[in-house]
Amino acid sequence: MDPVLRVEGLSKRYPRQSGLGSFQAVSDVSFELEPGGILGFLGPNGAGKTTTMKCILGLLAPSSGRIGVFGRPPASREARRRMGYIPENPDYEDSFTPEEYLSFFASMRHIPWSRGDSARMLGRVGLENWGRARIRRLSKGMRQKLSLALALQGSPELLVMDEPTGGFDPLARKEFRDMILEENARGAACFLSSHILSDIETICSRALILAGGRVVREGSMSELLSSQNRHRISYRKPGAGNAEELVELADLQAAIDRIRSSGGEIEAVGREILSLEEVFLSATSGGEAR
């Protein structure tokens, strides 16, 4: 099956503000998002995540490389029609109401839309009582919810989300995660950039870590979280209860022999499961390339 999103050798250089020379924001980034997948996009500030996202959305022209959204250029009508986007820190014309925004976006997308559809969509994202309020009265989190409503309009096949839960409280974050999983169950592929690692860990099937404009780690969540080298040995010490020991793969056999020879009883040996935070920190601090 063709990927929903394919990025091949994407590079982007920006001219420096001084006008002299340029700097490389993104360098040779490649990845794919399969239909129905949820890809988490991680990286420290300035890693090039937003630049990559804007190239995918057709807001920035890549310096080199190719991007295909449903096999088409990102700025094409067909690609845009099948995509929903939640920007980071969204802002809207503040004299409008959420209902008006939904109605105008529906007209621009050629989606038949009624006031009842607006009420349903706003109810779904938790803005049921704010449909006719001016956007200037909405909090940051509420504007984020409006972005979500606009992105979900017309049941897109790809959702591109840039820090979508930034303004959310814990309850709203949980509701957001549930909604993304619902959309994914419907068949939508999701590309999610976030600094909130627990969100990525909970809902993403794959993740990609960017540092210094390059991909430094990529894989399924289970691949990323299970350490290839470190193993945990659980054993019972004679007369001293349970104990655990973390050893490198090269030292594993020697450690088992040592525990046994000292009278210990091995209960389990398995790969160390890391948290996504540990993986993120080790990948981004070491600058380790995949």
């Binding site: 807001l59 009508r77 845009r80 986007y85 920007p87 606009l150």
Partner: peptide
């Protein structure tokens, strides 16, 4: 400046 152009150009509108 308000970034309201991003969702517009990203999804429903061409330049």
């Amino acid at each position: 400046e308000s970034r309201s152009v991003m969702p517009l150009l990203a999804v429903p509108l061409s330049r």
